[in-house]
């Protein structure tokens, strides 16, 4: 908020007003610290839109089942959609190898000591990944509920997994990442009958307390597999992107960008 008049100052504006005071010059700015990352993310998003590829950034704490969910998704959708995955991990390409075993392209980004992916790392990965002919690209972010939330990668949608082996109060503890999400996936839902202290209603209430009107779907990929609601959401998003891009090209306009720090095109289907 502007300290002078109390107005809400729109982000991404920059006004430089030098005030000379002796040999000290004060320059007032309102400049996003992540402006460079955001510009690279917008560039990535242009690539994705140009090829009509829906890009979903998948985030969670380590071990919530991101790779297992993507494997099950590939098996279920590979006859209908052409899928690829960008894998972010601190070390090893184990996850990319698991994805490739299902016959879809997977590019591993090994971040070394970095706790999150950023738009430049994703852009680098795109050098190795032809987007032509793809319908759906997953970016599996580094397992971490803190850092990935702040960095727009150029994705269209953010999905955060909350597994039933974690606390149902995770959304209250990590508000930034859940608030940036377009969908919450309650993973390992097949364990709900043995995870007595995890209450899905409490998890949903914690998401709603963040002012998030976003859907929450249950998934299970091991015992009693069930990922129907997740697949339906994905397919509706692929279709919705196509409609937006068709409308945009007919109107001769580029679709607006979405991202962790931007308003998505349209509210996610509930």
């Amino acid at each position: 908020m502007c300290i002078d008049c109390g107005c809400a100052v729109p982000a991404r504006t920059s006004t430089a007003t030098p005030q000379r005071a002796g040999t000290i010059t004060a320059v007032n700015l309102l400049q996003d610290l992540l402006a460079r990352n955001d510009a690279m993310a917008a560039h990535n998003r242009d690539h994705f839109n140009e090829h009509g590829v829906l890009v979903v950034n998948v985030m969670s704490s380590p071990g919530a089942g991101k790779t297992a969910l993507l494997e099950a998704t590939i098996v279920a959708l590979r006859d209908r959609l052409r899928i690829a995955v960008i894998e972010g991990d601190l070390e090893t390409d184990n996850d990319a190898a698991r994805i490739r075993a299902h016959g879809v392209p997977a590019i591993q980004i090994t971040t070394g000591t970095a706790c999150h992916l950023d738009a430049a790392l994703v852009h680098q990965a795109l050098d190795e990944l032809p987007l032509a002919g793809l319908d759906l690209l997953f970016i599996e972010n580094v397992g971490n509920l803190v850092c990935p939330a702040g960095f727009d990668l150029g994705q269209h949608r953010n999905v955060t997994l909350l597994s039933t082996t974690e606390g149902d109060d995770k959304p209250a503890k990590y508000p930034v990442i859940f608030r940036a999400s377009d969908l919450v996936v309650l993973s390992k839902a097949d364990l709900l009958d043995v995870m007595d202290d995890f209450n899905p209603l409490r998890a949903l209430a914690a998401v709603r307390a963040l002012g998030c009107d976003i859907p929450l779907v249950h998934t299970a990929v091991r015992r009693a597999p069930s990922i129907g609601a997740w697949l339906a959401w994905l397919e509706s998003e692929v279709e919705a992107l196509r409609c937006r891009l068709d409308r945009g090209s007919r109107a001769g306009a580029r679709p607006p960008s979405a991202g962790t720090r931007a308003v998505p095109f349209t509210p996610a289907a509930g």
């Binding site: 982000a11 000290i24 010059t25 320059v27 700015l29 503890k173 508000p175 307390a209 963040l210 002012g211």
Partner: peptide, 30 residues
Amino acid sequence: NRLACPLCGSFRTRILQGDELRLRRVELSM
């Protein structure tokens, strides 16, 4: 982590302030 409306309880709210991450002012020695 309590971003619902405290008055009517609705969770359909939007953030007016609190998600800033920006450079506001720099003092330079000329």
